[in-house]
Amino acid sequence: MRGHAACRSYFRLLSQKGMLKVHNISVKYGTRNVVSDVSFELGTPTIVALIGPNGAGKTTLIRSLNGTVPISQGGIELDGKKLNELSRREIARNIAVVAQENETKFPVTVLEYVLSGRFANGSAFGWETETDIAIARKALDECDLGEFYNRLMNELSGGERQRVVLARAIATDARILLLDEPTANLDLAHQAQMFRLVRERCRGCDASAIVITHDLNLAAEFADEVLLLKGGEVFAYGKPKDVLTETNLNEVYNVQVLLDENPTSGRVRVTMKY
């Protein structure tokens, strides 16, 4: 393990049994249930791929997990504590989010952007410490953004920005990463790099991640578990090869697929039949 600065603290590691427990949660928009009766437990180190058709409630589910979308039923526990009793700072110290980046109208530099992820770790006032800056730079280096420190966010390409957003999440001390389609804007090489970084982070720091993706093969390749959502409900949850089956995919996506084994990794491989 290449001693991740962000997870050096041994005592934090000791206290992370169980991590995230989700009991029968539902989320309502108006009277409509967008997420219904979802339960699962996230242990460490695990990567869960969250898949499902558009409108299945994937983003809403992820947003409810860090309390930014209120749940109407059920409960979420973070390390044994009720999520809705924790402050935003406490939650942010434990859960980092990689969402679709929205453009900012102000000239924010890449380093400033990544440092904003350190908000919950230091004082809410004042300046970042040397340690904060070292951690931010390391995260940027890991994401292949070494020479981007002083570039402005709105000068970067979509893919570069997406990697900065990941770097910000990595720069937090959080042991749970929630990623909403992190590979949407990325080329082939950076798609694989994104998942490799997430996997390294999870193994190296005993962290875990929930990743929304539409790429079933990336899910099969990198995820320990796959959670398949349909209409806001858990349709299937388990090992990739148990979830990514012809019947499941046919029933959820209404498509015909061919399943075989990836010759290099031995993981399940999904091919569409058009």
Partner: peptide, 8 residues
């Protein structure tokens, strides 16, 4: 949303 996610 970023602010909310990162502890503000």
């Amino acid at each position: 949303r970023d602010a909310l996610d990162f502890g503000v």
